[in-house]
Simulated scan of single mutants.
Amino acid sequence: MSEAPFPTESGALVLDGPVGPLEVAVDLPEGEVAPLPVVAIVCHPLSTEGGSMHNKVVTMCARSLRELGVTVVRFNFRGVGHSAGTFDHGNGEQDDLRAVAAWVRAQRPDAALWLAGFSFGAFVSLRLAGELQPQVMVSIAPPVDRGWDFEGVQPPAQWLVIQGDADEIVDAQAVYRWLEGLSAPHEMVRMPDTSHFFHRKLIDLRGAIQHGVRRWLPGANG
């Protein structure tokens, strides 16, 4: 695990990942909001389809959380950008997330860990939810019908799921059926007339994320 210090300003850094360097971006809270003791790791969509930490849904998720006072960590899975390695069908990518989470917890031990992910990133983060025990999880368009193994995922009790009704890549109805079959509590947000990449709906996504997680922020009920 890398011993790189947690930055005091937003910016990029490199961690020692399982197969070499991992490219990371840390986004500190927006200027006028009080920083909260929360660090959210946001995972990007499928690497082989051009997914990266710069994806517009990922960056909007990061912005949404930053505006609430949450510190956000984005990173490129292996084989993307300046991260070493090659695509590993979600297995090695889980190791990448483990490494980033271990670094966050070592550097910010007093902060609550949140996990978020979009599409393939939702799959990777959900696979590790039981192990990493995040306080809050945000899953955007989880690809439950795309051949990934969602069996036995253990999301936390504070779990927000956002799905576009007009998703052309992930079958929205499959997502709704999957959620209905789970015993895990969750908050479901269905976004009408919304495609997989939230074209013309990014501001609505921002509102859905902020409304969904606001009550889970430290001190929200105090």
Rank of each mutant, 00 (worst) to 15 (best):
A122N: 12
P156E: 07
P142M: 07
L128S: 03
W148S: 02
G164L: 08
F118M: 05
Q133N: 06
L115N: 03
L160C: 03
Q154M: 11
M137F: 04
D149R: 10
I169M: 13
L179Y: 08
Q154P: 00
V124A: 02
L126R: 03
G121C: 03
M137V: 00
D171T: 14
P142L: 13
G152D: 07
E151A: 14
Q154L: 04
A112Q: 15
F120L: 13
P155C: 00
I169E: 12
V144G: 05
V153P: 00
E151N: 01
F123R: 04
W159M: 06
G152I: 13
P155F: 01
R127N: 05
V153H: 03
I169A: 08
V124Q: 03
A116D: 14
V161L: 06
P143G: 09
D171F: 10
D165C: 05
F120C: 04
G164Y: 14
V138A: 13
D149P: 04
A112H: 15
I169G: 04
R146G: 01
W178Q: 07
P143L: 11
L128T: 07
G117F: 07
L132F: 12
L132G: 06
V161S: 02
P143Q: 12
G147E: 10
G152Y: 01
R127L: 10
I140F: 07
E168W: 10
P134D: 05
G164W: 13
I140T: 03
I162S: 06
I162Q: 09
M137H: 14
A141I: 14
Q154F: 00
F150N: 05
Y176G: 02
E168G: 04
L132N: 05
P143V: 12
L128R: 11
G117W: 11
A174I: 11
P155D: 01
A174F: 12
V175D: 11
A116H: 14
I140K: 15
P156R: 13
